[in-house]
Amino acid sequence: MLLLQQLINGLMLGGLYVMVAVAFTLIIGMLNFLNFTIPALFMFAAMMMWATMTGNLPFGNDFLLSAFGEHHIWIAGVVVSIVSICIVSLIIERFTYRYMKAKYGDATEHALPLVSSLGFLIIFEHLVISQWGSDPLQIESPFGDATFTIGSLIFSIPQIISLALSLGIVFLLSHIIRRTKLGRALRSIAERPDTATLMGVDVLRIVPVVYVITGLLCAISGILFTINYTSIDAYIGDTVATVAIAGMVLGGLGNVWGAVVGGLFVGILEVFSIYIVGADFVKVPIWGLLLLILVLKPTGLFGHSAIGKGKF
C-alpha cells in the first residue's frame, strides 16, 4: 500500500514535469534548440504567483487585493503569472530567435539561441534574487489540506486537479498540432524550416506562437507547483527543468506524447528513488538513465531520428 501511495505521489509530481518536458520538446522539435529560458519561465511564473498571493509585487498589491478579495487572491495570482509570462515569452522570442534568424540565416545551425537563452536564465534568476532574495519562500495553499482517501491511500485534491489539468492541456495541444491550421503550419516548420516559408507559412508569425505556447505550459506548471508544494526559490526552475529534460529525452526529442510518458516516468522514478535510496542519491538513477538512453538509443522511446542532429 505504501508503494502504491508512492506511485500516486510520483504521478502527481510527474504531471508537473510533463508540461515542462512538453515545452522543451516543442522548441526542440520545431526550432531545433535546447531552450534554457524554460526553467526561467517556470520559476518566474511560480514567483509571480507567490508575490501576488503574499502581496509582494513591486506595485498593484492593494488593487489586486481589493479587486479579488482575500479568498480569491489566488485567481489574481494566476492571471498575473500568465499575463507576465506571455509578455516575457514574446521578448525572449525576439532575442533568441528572430534577430539571429534574420541576420545569420538558419539560426538553428549555431549555438546562438542556446547561449541567448542561457543569458535569459541568468537575467531572470538574478532579477528575482535581487527583488526577493534567494531563500525559500512559502505561501499558504489556498485550498488547505483538501484530501480524500480511498482505503488507506491519500489523494490531494489540488494535485489530482493539477494532474488532470496537465494531461488535459497536453491533449488539447496535441489536438491543435494534429488537426488545426496552426498545427499544420507548426508541423511544416518542424519538418522543413527552410521551405516552410515557400509553402505559405509565415514563419515569423508562427514562431512567437510557439514561444507563447511553451511559456504558457511553463506558467501553468509553475503555478500548480506553487499551489501544491507551497515552497519555492529562485532556483526552482533549474531543479524542475533538469528532471523534465530527462523525461523529454526518455520520450524522444520532439515527440509530445513521448514527453508525457517520460515526464510521468521520471516523476515516479524520483519519488521511488527518494523513498528507496534517499534524497541525496536521487540524481544518480535519473541522470544515469538519461546518459544510458542518450548513448544507447538517442531517439528515446518514440523520438524521430532527424531531430536534434543539427549543430546545436
Binding site: 531545433n32 529534460i245 541522470w287 538519461l290 542518450l294 538517442p298 536534434g308 542532429k309 549543430k311
Partner: peptide
C-alpha cells in the same frame, strides 16, 4: 551530436 551531446555531457 548537437543537442544530444549537450545533454549527454550535462547528464
Amino acid at each position: 551530436r548537437g543537442v544530444y551531446m549537450v545533454l549527454a555531457t550535462f547528464a
